[in-house]
């Protein structure tokens, strides 16, 4: 079902923040591509740079302090990073939709759901008010909001967290985006509500066929949703592979460790959880060595001197690691 043509090709993005304590190297040269209709899972812990990477693509970061030092992002024949704000505005919320983690703070509390749904359609698709309203109701029904016709005039605080996230999804889908970037869309929700949202996204993906970038720290969510997974650590992608390959045959020591630390839901209870020692890296230092080296069990001299590049191995598997068991 997946096509091989890329819809988004990102090359070597470097994003830094200037702070009082010095520079923060948030994203250190990230490259990936997204195929048509594909769901790419981006996994990483807080501070690994997963959100900053995606926000850099659409310049959604406050600049300054953020600074996109280099990089290219080819979408639809254009480089997103070279566009001025006027051009970008046509793409944000139009061809590329965004869902944020916290539906509490990403909806405007003083505007009705109707207004917030209709605005992007009038802006991007040039629809008139009544057409847009009709489509808005359709969208709300599509994401499973009961009595959409009556509820469209409600304000965000009338909705529960799960319902608000549905509204966010409806807004993101309003203009038929080719890419949907979902930044931890279910993290703030309870598991039973998360299960509802995951089902909706799975269904809509089949119906609408857009490509999705799904940012999360939850390896479980990605296992059930993604076609391909990229694992981030310290501002780099350290491993990238098709989902079955990554979980059955993780190659980077960080990914291996991460999968081992998770307790099982089935089978025998482990006597003791395996853990990754140490702390996540501080991003103040220049990434001249492998950022996982201080916590890694396989560290060699080279790891402390050179940052490994993300290189292809067999089975569409890419790993950024000097250690190679073969």
């Amino acid at each position: 079902m997946l096509s091989q043509t890329s819809i988004l090709k990102v090359e070597n993005i470097v994003t830094r923040f200037r702070t009082q304590e010095g520079q923060v190297h948030a994203v250190n040269g990230i490259s990936f591509d997204l195929k048509k209709g594909e769901l790419l899972g981006v996994v990483g812990e807080s501070g690994s740079g997963k959100s900053v990477t995606m926000m850099s693509l659409l310049k959604l970061l406050p600049m300054p302090p953020a600074e996109i030092v280099s990089g290219e992002a080819n979408f639809d024949g254009h480089d997103l990073l070279k566009m001025d704000l006027e051009e970008l505005r046509k793409i944000r919320g139009g061809k590329i939709g965004f869902i944020f983690q916290d539906p509490m703070t990403s909806l405007n509390p003083v505007l009705t759901i109707e207004y917030q749904l209709i605005e992007p359609m009038r802006e991007h698709l040039g629809m008139n008010r009544s057409d847009a309203r009709r489509r808005a109701i359709e969208l709300l029904e599509m994401v499973g909001i009961p009595e959409a016709k009556n509820r469209i005039n409600d304000f965000p605080h009338h909705f529960s967290g799960g319902m608000r996230q549905r509204v966010m999804i409806a807004i993101a889908l309003a203009c038929n985006p080719q890419i949907l970037i979902a930044d931890e869309p279910t993290t703030a929700l309870d598991v039973t509500i998360q299960a509802q949202i995951l089902e909706i996204i799975k269904r809509l993906r089949k119906e609408l066929g857009m490509a999705i970038i799904w940012i999360t720290h939850d390896l479980g969510v990605v296992a059930g949703m993604a076609d391909r997974v990229a694992v981030m650590y310290g501002g780099n992608i350290v491993e990238e592979a098709p989902v079955f390959e990554l979980y059955s045959n993780p190659k980077h020591p960080y990914t291996q460790g991460l999968l081992k630390t998770l307790p099982n839901m089935k089978g025998k209870r482990a006597e003791r959880l395996e853990s990754i020692n140490g702390q996540p890296p501080s991003l103040h230092q220049k990434p001249v060595s492998c950022s996982f080296a201080p916590r890694c069990s396989k560290t060699m001299e080279r790891c402390r001197q050179e940052n490994p590049a993300l290189l292809s191995r067999e089975n569409n598997h890419k790993v950024a690691c000097w250690w190679n068991p073969n």
Binding site: I193, Q196, G220, G224, S248, L259
Partner: peptide, 27 residues
């Protein structure tokens, strides 16, 4: 039962096979 079935498993093979009990509505 519903709560346990809603927890995502970190194994794509099991995830593809399993049937979730999706609860309707909110608490």
């Amino acid at each position: 039962k519903a709560l346990l079935s809603a927890v995502p498993l970190h194994d794509p093979v099991l995830e593809k096979k399993r049937k979730r009990i999706i609860l309707i509505g909110d608490v």
